[in-house]
Design a protein around this nucleic acid. Structure first.
Lengths: 117, 117
DNA sequence: ACGAGTGTGTAGTATATACGACACATGACA
DNA sequence: TGTCATGTGTCGTATATACTACACACTCGT
């Protein structure tokens, strides 16, 4: 599972082509971790970092937080909390949607957004 | 957060009134953990156990697995995997439903179940 | 009185998580 | 030819997770 690492590296290198401030060291500094650690993360030498660090990285690299957490093998703790408040309800809903096509889920999202409960 | 422990104890004591096989020791044995450990769990002396152990406990005590995991502060790993496959879609859906009343979510569940995508 | 079963207190442990510190080699630039 | 910045290799560590092992005190039936 070095998918996360490869993605971080690709995003960073891409940004770097137009902005030299996206060197590994400088990104690490802004994110608040050691360069050596970021290096290992990018090469999949260590497991993906904590949720907090992953989120700071996502912001730095302008990536979607939930997507980034997913690449890191995690699910946002705020989503988990929502589920934990009504576990049976959400469990059933999510399992129902396991095989549903993207646009079916999107329809549900829109419907809920416009819904008048 | 001894909510999990208290619930385990209550469920077990209740079952015990009609079946002496639900002593702490015997339940621990069937679940595959040490009695001392289960004792600490029930009194909130330690954090709730792992997902696997929590699920075996839920089955033993005839409790809903997702509800039990929630009490233990967790979200089923299979739900997490479903979310991780399409993180942005599910994140939006779940956040939309954060404040929705139960019956609104139930309507969505039914609708999806009967849906023809 | 004693053996079986009960719950619990104390101590210890293996593994995972999430990093930091420091040194090193390389390449570009003045 | 220094020096500056780059990425990386090695080693160590604090904290959390998820338990086990063993001994103890109590109670209940025989």
């Amino acid at each position: 599972m070095t998918q996360f690492g490869r993605t971080v590296r690709e995003l960073r290198e891409r940004l770097r082509q137009e902005d030299a401030r996206f060197s590994l060291r400088q990104v690490a500094k802004r994110v608040g971790i050691e360069p050596a650690y970021l290096s290992k993360i990018e090469r999949g030498d260590v497991a993906p970092p904590s949720e907090a660090t992953t989120l700071r990285l996502a912001e730095e690299l302008d990536a979607d937080p939930d997507w980034f957490l997913a690449l890191a093998g995690k699910v946002s703790s705020d989503l988990q909390e929502i589920i934990r408040r009504r576990p049976e309800l959400f469990a059933e809903l999510i399992r129902q949607l396991r095989e549903a096509p993207d646009d079916a889920i999107l329809r549900v999202v829109r419907e809920v957004r416009d819904g008048d409960w």
